[in-house]
Design a protein around this nucleic acid. Sequence first.
DNA 1: CTGAAAGCGCTTACAG
DNA 2: CTGAAAGCGCTTACAG
Lengths: 350, 350
Amino acid sequence: MRNPTPLNHARLPTIRDVAAAAGVSPAAVSRHLNRSVVLPAETASRIDSAVAALNYRPNIQALRLSRGITQMIGVVTPDIAYPFFAMIASAAEEEASRFGYSVVICNTRNQIERELDYLDKLAWRHVDGLIFLTNHADDGTLGKRLERLQNVVLLDEDVAGTVAPKIFIDNHMGGLLATRHLIEQGHRRLAHVTGPAGVMSVKERFAGFRQAMAEAGLPVDEALVKFGAYDEAWGAEAFRQLFALAERPSAVFLASDALALGMLAACRAAGVAVPRSLSLVGFDDLPFVRYLDPPLTTVRQPAEELGRCAVRRLIETLRGLPVPDRPERLPVELVVRGSVAGHGSHPSLR
Amino acid sequence: MRNPTPLNHARLPTIRDVAAAAGVSPAAVSRHLNRSVVLPAETASRIDSAVAALNYRPNIQALRLSRGITQMIGVVTPDIAYPFFAMIASAAEEEASRFGYSVVICNTRNQIERELDYLDKLAWRHVDGLIFLTNHADDGTLGKRLERLQNVVLLDEDVAGTVAPKIFIDNHMGGLLATRHLIEQGHRRLAHVTGPAGVMSVKERFAGFRQAMAEAGLPVDEALVKFGAYDEAWGAEAFRQLFALAERPSAVFLASDALALGMLAACRAAGVAVPRSLSLVGFDDLPFVRYLDPPLTTVRQPAEELGRCAVRRLIETLRGLPVPDRPERLPVELVVRGSVAGHGSHPSLR
DNA sequence: CTGAAAGCGCTTACAG
DNA sequence: CTGAAAGCGCTTACAG
């Protein structure tokens, strides 16, 4: 009746072997190993010796079945190869491992079907919880599915109407800082190129942009605000559209570094000098943007901190702490490098 | 005796519930679901209906315990946030998921203790297999541990003396292509900046470098070959050392893009124009190096293909296929961009 | 062919 | 305090 050992596995010692070697019951070994009881020193050391001698380690599948937990969490992102998500996942793994959790990769390519697949995996207990990062607006599908699920923390982007722990950044402040910086450098005609309309981060960064413009008494020209996607292709395309305008902007605030990359490439192709002819501010601070030419001025998202924070919050949730009534907001920081030039009548003009 | 459901979990339907609803035994349900038997159509459809009605899915922990397999593989890398490893992991996840495997992140920070920890996890069956990528020379510790382990495939870098499936790239050809390209562009005084001496990839890329030099009848000046590490810091430091020389090189072949990044930054800081005063060829082709200024000429490693290939090979191993007697070698490709200029007496000089 | 039962290796409520 | 036993939810060798 014993299953043939699959995968050519050698038989590993079990808790019964340890018990036999130590002359106690399996229950005693279990309790001692889990510290749910304090045994007489002599007995305890007999067990410890047996464990060491046999090189025993509890079978994790058995543990999981009997305890009903997996000690695993999933990190759901569009693609773990994108540096921002990779940094989050890496930091999440590090933090998770200190709590004894493993993290499994859940790539969605930003497809809702795959997002739902991973939510199913949570429902079927393949993992204890999920750190969920989506990059598209929800038509209600996600929200409805999330309603019946516990143990997911929403990271970086909201799913409207969902009750869950949420870790976001201060998008509004990011938009404000980027735009103020441009204005301080003397720019007056500003464009904003951003991701899909309807997504929280897009709305909030745009709100920051508008506030900075309002503070400076500057009008927001609708023709200079380009909603689309967070990717390189849209950055390049947006450049073409802006470049075709009669009155071109002298600077643009881009809501992601990928957008900035795309626009930078398009600028080069068109022979437009950055920052002399066009100033750019990005968003994210991907690790390599300081090596670009010019080094990119951008708004830094604390990727590692986001990952760590999400793991801590998730583990608290798993331990039964109530869902906080408002999102946690991590601070954002303007990193001034070389992609913004002084412009126009501003005193700091060069 | 029933455990209290942890994590506030609702009770999920079990195979007994399905069996009861369909009026058959749990064994029948199990066999039908695993297609290990063909039931009369009428019975089969009763079971299918019960599964659908109850929204039943087998408990994966129970499956794992009874079958002794986890359907999970680990991807062991120094840090999944480094783009090259991130791309490998991402492609590995995609390929693994089509075979029903999940992939768990195993970051080692290039520390042998953490590498051994993950090998332990394999030994304790936390995963079925490991894709193992290390970046340092082994003093024998790793090799000895690996000896007793099955189901690990070595990726990108060797651990000397180990019997295991191995997926490498054609490092020698990479060194050859990079160096030939430099020579063809008229360079004669070439430097080579590379990773830690003793590591397979370092040795092989260097051998390619030497072969190209020999082909051209050029001597290899030991003072221009810099072993160290694969990272940015070493690229910058190597530049300083090279720059301090009386007879400086006109071009350098760097064994990673990270090295090239570090050297590029150091060049800028020193006011050395690339490629006019110094030509650079990197290795890896990280996704963003085409956005550098100048766009980096580099040797492309097929990162995604490496990840996919490693997964396929691992799954074959899990299915009992024998270990191939020689490493699989994936081809490499020179990507010519803008970081190499013509030089000296060569006809193509500009 | 089909089901009852034993087994995978733990945990823990219960009884002594 | 300690152990025997039942249970977690599957799979599968065995018997009918």
